[in-house]
Design a protein around this nucleic acid. Sequence first.
DNA 1: GATGAATGAGGGTTCATTCAT
DNA 2: AATGAATGAACCCTCATTCAT
Lengths: 211, 211, 211, 211
Amino acid sequence: MHPSFIKVSEEKQRNIINAALNEFSKHPYETASTNKIVKEAGISKGILFRYFGNKKSLYLFLYEYVLDKLSEAIFADLKLADPDVFERYKQLISMKMNLVQQNPAFFHFMNRVLIEKSPEVTTELEKIQSLKEENNYDKFLTDIDYSFFKEEIDTKYALDTIKWVLDGISNRYDQQLKESIHDIDSFNTLIDQCTVEIEEYFHFLKPLFYK
Amino acid sequence: MHPSFIKVSEEKQRNIINAALNEFSKHPYETASTNKIVKEAGISKGILFRYFGNKKSLYLFLYEYVLDKLSEAIFADLKLADPDVFERYKQLISMKMNLVQQNPAFFHFMNRVLIEKSPEVTTELEKIQSLKEENNYDKFLTDIDYSFFKEEIDTKYALDTIKWVLDGISNRYDQQLKESIHDIDSFNTLIDQCTVEIEEYFHFLKPLFYK
Amino acid sequence: MHPSFIKVSEEKQRNIINAALNEFSKHPYETASTNKIVKEAGISKGILFRYFGNKKSLYLFLYEYVLDKLSEAIFADLKLADPDVFERYKQLISMKMNLVQQNPAFFHFMNRVLIEKSPEVTTELEKIQSLKEENNYDKFLTDIDYSFFKEEIDTKYALDTIKWVLDGISNRYDQQLKESIHDIDSFNTLIDQCTVEIEEYFHFLKPLFYK
Amino acid sequence: MHPSFIKVSEEKQRNIINAALNEFSKHPYETASTNKIVKEAGISKGILFRYFGNKKSLYLFLYEYVLDKLSEAIFADLKLADPDVFERYKQLISMKMNLVQQNPAFFHFMNRVLIEKSPEVTTELEKIQSLKEENNYDKFLTDIDYSFFKEEIDTKYALDTIKWVLDGISNRYDQQLKESIHDIDSFNTLIDQCTVEIEEYFHFLKPLFYK
DNA sequence: GATGAATGAGGGTTCATTCAT
DNA sequence: AATGAATGAACCCTCATTCAT
């Protein structure tokens, strides 16, 4: 990213980032169109490439940007973190839900990156991810009180299971959420349904794992 | 698909199908290149379009082909189906692993189709899928003996949990498997690791769910 | 044209020629499809190119064929030729009408060649035409009795005028004739209208030119 | 047509238009090659499609352009219109000749459009033509003084005859004009010959029709 | 002789990227 | 710094022609 990008007004920066997130969350990397991005952002073709050099750099910049924002949010959240891992995850989910509602494109971009790494960008995506690793889920799981767990439970497996159940539920709702992105009512309904479902699965798992 | 395609030597058929699966598993439908497919398959541009008419038909042919092969495999497997859901899933996994080893592109194509239905082909993909419906996961879960489960366990949640744990492990290995697609040794090592890991997680879950 | 073509059954020859005439009368040279020709003629791709070498040769063969058939017909007609040039032209027209009705593609091919010489074939078309020149309109105009004409009339201009009036009327009907090629009733109606119109224009010209 | 096209230097515009007219006058719409156009015009493929969007729009733009230029010329000419239909036609011819000399491709394009309406563009061609209708031949024949004609002459037939004689002469020269498009001397000689010939035929017809 | 599978140059079109202004 | 016109490689696909069978 070119230093001149930071000098432009924050609003313009936001416009560009949102336009790009929006395009990259709607289409796979290779299909996403820089033309649409500049059009939606209201900037010229030239300036986008001055700021970001090329499509790939823009994409990687967005990924880094999103990871940072996410980690900021997680970090902020962690202060109020509950030692109960189920509560902790509920907080994470509620935080995510807030993000989703504030900026669906932001969230859908993240989801898309996770599932569909184009060969043109995989390597770099992973490089970035490993650089930001300290801010990832592992950090999110600090200060969990493992004494809630039954003694015979290997918490490593238990935590993965919880996470994957959450992932499974998320996937169930993802496509529908993306489709109802412009119908705020059904969008919120879906989010409520999802939250309820998470509660149910947690209610199922908790007595299995906890004393 | 043009009848002449079936008349061609099986090796050539395999070359073409594999080249196409490979390209379509690396790139989204729109950006997958028929040029690269013919190059990798060692055939001329013209003949690809004689066999399949156009890119879309080729893609849908592959989808149908993959569904059929998968259903063959599942069907063969089901005969020995164990009423124990964990055993059933282990069979499914081992079947998948065999498929993966025989034809990694086959498997990666399937994964991509599942996550990224391009708007140009969604409708037709779904049409094909509904035609092949009888062979899906639901059928895979027939004749499970639920009496193994503890009475207090709601099997609906338990089955989802098992499935999602499998998905989680799969995702962990997917990207690595794709990358080591041309290094058969590390590929097989990964598959072994994955199998072991599944065993571990099942070993963790089983006493929680079963009597 | 390859000698083997003459050895095949006349019916097959006719099939091929008609299929080709039909295609070339429907489409300009460059757009006409050898695929459609072989399909309609019920022959293989290979044999068409064995008989005619390439598309251009086929086209030129057809042109020569059509010129020959036309000159045959004219020659046959000439025997009954009337010394009155108007009557002579009426005979020519009626002969043409017969040809049109017998084989519209034959006729439409001729028309198309006359107006739309593709640069790929112009030179050769003209070469053929000059070879066949002895059979053309000039011959058709032998033994005309010029004593019908007023003395002050330069018959060179008069004959051209008559011919061009006929051409003008023909052009008026051409497109419509081509469109109604499959509706024999409206096709015949058009031909009748055309004949009437020719009579009218001749009735207009005759007193101007003739004593 | 994209607004950027008008901003470009007139010379470049002319180059592009002439290259396109030239290609479309040599080949039927479907086989005319945008590749050849950009090559002859000395521009990139991309910019042609930026200016005109697609081949069809380019073609229709040319048609409209040609109709407009033609109607400009006719309109300018009409101001001096002579009530004598022969003089009127001579003016039309001399105007056409000027156009031909200024831009032969322009003229040949027009000729091709008239004879060979490709199914892909017929509808739109007709739409454009009907929009420009006010400038057609009918208008050209307004305010003719029919009192010059002998009383026994049916002017309807006479006017058609004059027009068709002109068409006949034109056709005689058309192909030759197209061939000598790059040899300006023989081109001009042909045009002079044609003009003389028209004079001769008019000199022949006039005493037949006029008092 | 006859087939039709196979070829590959060429078709129209798009789009990330560059560069003169 | 900012624009958007210009580039050209790559896209999917067609079709006259060849050649193994």
